[in-house]
Design a protein around this nucleic acid. Structure first.
Length: 125
DNA sequence: AAAGTGACTGTTA
DNA sequence: TTAACAGCCACTT
């Protein structure tokens, strides 16, 4: 997709894929720089969990704001929008607010231009 | 133990 | 362009 296969191999070797532990996911999210965003699928891929975007969403749901060392707000869906959910109790608005504070702009359709803001990892961590 | 449910996504129509 | 679908898998009932 966006990365050299070689890079993926390296990253996957370093990240443990202990299912039921979301450490690899959190590790990737921590690498997203301020002012950039990553998609759920992208994070899953980098964490060695290809095709399991939903797992990333679930992992972030567990963390949410309790852990301040994880920039959870920088993960959005593939359409470039903040994923909404009735269970988020307004934290979706908080997410948008945090991103705008980092300099990310939303267009008239409440979407983020991925061409401009999508995180493109250097080789590797 | 089986079935339902999501902070998802690529494909198909 | 948008929308429905089918995979996806940990968790909860």
């Amino acid at each position: 997709m966006f990365y050299e296969t070689q890079h993926l191999v390296i990253i996957q070797q370093e990240m443990k894929k202990t299912s039921s532990s979301y450490e690899s996911i959190y590790e990737v999210v921590r690498c997203i720089p301020s002012g950039k965003v990553a998609t759920y699928g992208q994070v899953a891929e980098l964490a060695g969990l290809i095709g399991q975007a939903r797992l990333v969403g679930y992992a972030l749901y567990r963390v949410d704001m309790k852990s301040s060392d994880i920039p959870w707000q920088r993960v959005i869906n593939a359409k470039g929008e903040v994923s909404l959910s009735p269970f988020r109790q307004g934290t979706d608005y908080v997410q948008r607010s945090l991103l705008e504070h980092e300099g990310i702009q939303f267009n008239a359709n409440d979407k983020i231009d991925l061409k401009t803001y999508l995180w493109e990892p250097e080789v590797p961590l």
